[in-house]
């Protein structure tokens, strides 16, 4: 526990010093969102209809983008090698990394969601559902992109490969999150989709950290 809190502190300190790591994905998210009205046309009715998909695709891409360099520096400086060799603390490191990744990418998305609601013309009810899906979904996005980063850590061609292997796993999440928002927009019950999202979250929370730890060990070799 002491190790975990000190690792969290370290991660947060690093994030505080390298603001680009979490600011850039956020700016990217807003930029992608503002591209759609320009590309598709600014009619409010249409925007409102496609908003659920838009928000979630932009969120997927920005979280994926932020995860690319997640382990690169620690790998290069030998931090991960030491943790693997030390036989202790690797799991705390993994969970700390996941927590901080969510704090630095998922939470900002939730915080700017009122702005998104204004931009895309969402009403109060739709915004609430958007926030709930983001709260349930972004931790899963973080977990999976950390897994992708861990798998491709020592690979020669990281970046695009990580997107290739992780995006397919995002698809169920995308389906249910935008499904919940669409159901809410047409005044249908949406608790079912939210329950499935929660199930994804709990399942991923239980298993993904173990897979990440294994992936890091393999990459160090």
């Amino acid at each position: 526990m002491v190790m975990w809190s000190s690792l969290i502190k370290r991660e947060l300190q690093l994030l505080g010093r390298q603001k680009a790591d979490w600011l850039n994905p956020l700016v990217f998210f807003l930029l992608v969102l503002s591209l759609f009205p320009l590309g598709i046309g600014p009619e409010p009715g249409m925007l409102k209809q496609i908003a659920p998909g838009l928000v979630w695709i932009a969120a997927l891409l920005s979280v994926l983008l932020s995860a690319e360099r997640l382990f690169k520096d620690d790998y290069r400086y030998g931090v991960i090698e030491q943790l693997v060799a030390g036989r202790q603390g690797l799991f705390s490191y993994v969970t700390a990394k996941i927590c901080c990744h969510w704090l630095s990418t998922g939470v900002p998305l939730i915080l700017v969601s009122p702005l998104i609601a204004v931009l895309l013309g969402l009403d109060w009810q739709s915004w609430q559902v958007l926030v709930v899906t983001l709260i349930l979904g972004t931790p899963v996005l973080s977990l999976l992109s950390v897994l992708g980063a861990a798998l491709t850590m020592a690979a020669d061609k990281g970046g695009i490969l990580q997107a290739l292997i992780i995006l397919p796993l995002y698809i169920p999440l995308l389906i249910f999150a935008s499904g919940a928002m669409e159901a809410a927009a047409t005044a249908l019950p949406y608790t079912g989709q939210l329950a499935v999202l929660l199930a994804f979250l709990l399942f991923a929370l239980a298993l993904v950290p173990l897979a990440v730890r294994q992936a890091l060990r393999m990459n160090v070799g």
């Binding site: 897994l147 798998l151 690979a155 292997i165 393999m218 990459n219």
Partner: peptide, 27 residues
């Protein structure tokens, strides 16, 4: 395709196969 691509992305083939195996299990 992800499993195949991941296995080929490492300069050390044995490591690539291990990592790709992990992805196969996750999938």
């Amino acid at each position: 395709l992800g499993v195949i691509a991941l296995a080929g992305a490492f300069s050390e083939a044995a490591r690539g196969i291990k990592v790709a195996s992990l992805l196969a299990i996750v999938g």
